[in-house]
């Protein structure tokens, strides 16, 4: 009985974590430029990883000595300390590489397109730097 409840909680947490990971990945494709995509990537390593690890924590607390749970919390702590620094480095690199952040007004002035994903990235970059192609860019 107790095992069933724990299993249900674990499943809910793992599925919720998976949901945020998939949503973040969808965002990586749908959002218009590198800066907005960073926000989607942030979802993957905050809630996606967080809920998944929480699920594993609950599982190991029920099924083991709890030692694994402590280690998983450490994994999450290190992840949450380091991932904003990586995100910041990407943002800084994009800015100093001369990427113009996508804005609604810029997109409208550029090609008359709206803030839809897909076609919008080209409107966001009036003068794309050479090295900037390929940063999560599907086109």
């Amino acid at each position: 009985m107790m095992g069933d409840i724990v299993n249900a909680v674990v499943w809910v947490l793992l599925i919720a974590g998976g949901f945020f990971m998939v949503t973040g990945s969808v965002g990586m494709v749908r959002l218009p430029d590198v800066f907005t995509r960073m926000h989607a990537a942030g979802m993957v390593d905050t809630m996606g990883a967080g809920l998944t690890l929480a699920g594993l924590c609950v599982y190991s607390l029920h099924d083991g000595t709890g030692l694994v749970a402590v280690r998983l919390v450490l994994v999450l702590a290190f992840l949450w300390f380091t991932s904003p620094i990586a995100t910041h480095a990407v943002a800084k690199a994009a800015l100093s590489g001369g990427t113009t952040p996508y804005t609604v007004r810029g997109a409208q002035a550029g090609a008359g397109k709206d803030a839809r994903g897909g076609g919008a990235p080209d409107a966001a970059r009036q003068a794309p730097a050479d090295g900037e192609r390929g940063v999560g860019d599907p086109s």
Binding site: F19, G24, G27, D33, F35, M43, P101, R116
Partner: peptide, 27 residues
């Protein structure tokens, strides 16, 4: 902070999953 992270995750997820993406990014 964890609660704040959760709330803003839900907000960004709603933006991403809505049929038409409505973003208004700025610095």
């Amino acid at each position: 902070l964890v609660w704040e992270i959760f709330k803003s995750n839900v907000r960004v997820a709603r933006i991403i999953l809505s049929p038409r993406i409505r973003v208004d990014p700025s610095i």
